[in-house]
Design a protein around this nucleic acid. Sequence first.
DNA 1: ATAAAGTATAAACCATACTTCATACTTGTT
DNA 2: AACAAGTATGAAGTATGGTTTATACTTTAT
Lengths: 120, 120
Amino acid sequence: MLINELSKRTGVSIPTLRYYENYGLFKGVSDQKVKTNNYKDYEESIVEKIEMVKGAKEAGFTLSEIKKLLESWYNKRLSLDKKVEVVNNKINEIDSKIRQLKKVRKLLSECISDIERGDC
Amino acid sequence: MLINELSKRTGVSIPTLRYYENYGLFKGVSDQKVKTNNYKDYEESIVEKIEMVKGAKEAGFTLSEIKKLLESWYNKRLSLDKKVEVVNNKINEIDSKIRQLKKVRKLLSECISDIERGDC
DNA sequence: ATAAAGTATAAACCATACTTCATACTTGTT
DNA sequence: AACAAGTATGAAGTATGGTTTATACTTTAT
């Protein structure tokens, strides 16, 4: 598919998609032997990749972290054990973020009690 | 206390503290009637405030969001109900972030199964 | 055939959250 | 007294994650 469709399918703007591609999160192909233009073609699997990027971003991961994750994910030369390790590390980071959020949540809940008692 | 002590107590660098003060997250006082210099004095409660800022930042909130939260928190003219509302909104945002993190966590767990089955 | 819309690339610009630098005054140490 | 260390202020610089602009080519619609 072309970039316009990719944008529509993912809800990510065209400039941002180009930024991501340039950043190295995925790669479209423009085959000059086949086509006269150099329009890039993005395969179906890239939609999935971008959905992952969106999820990870909302979860607070940086593009650099996401890039590393995707790289090990799609790296054929990496051993299964190594891949599992990388992903497990990410899961641990997520668990730690969840704990942090719960801490702040608790702080805020306590604050509500304080407010209701007029302590604040 | 002076800024140096504030920095040591909170673990936040002096330039960052000055940036935060300038941003409006808190305010030190320099009383020229009392002292010849214009060194600022930071009261004890500011340490707490900064701890809140740190927690909220780790949880992924922006300085602008944190500022708004602190402002309603310490605003004497705001009704209790209004304060509770602001804080409750923040709690809802946190819950939504936690849900998002759990979604990504699930994605990654599934990925581990895929990897172990060699699907990936 | 020609205008409108889509695509590509590079460079400039922007916001957020800092850090570094330059300058100048104050305080503490010897 | 003099020099190091602390403080204040303003301005410039940095990194991240984009958006906007300018230019040019290609495709599509009329």
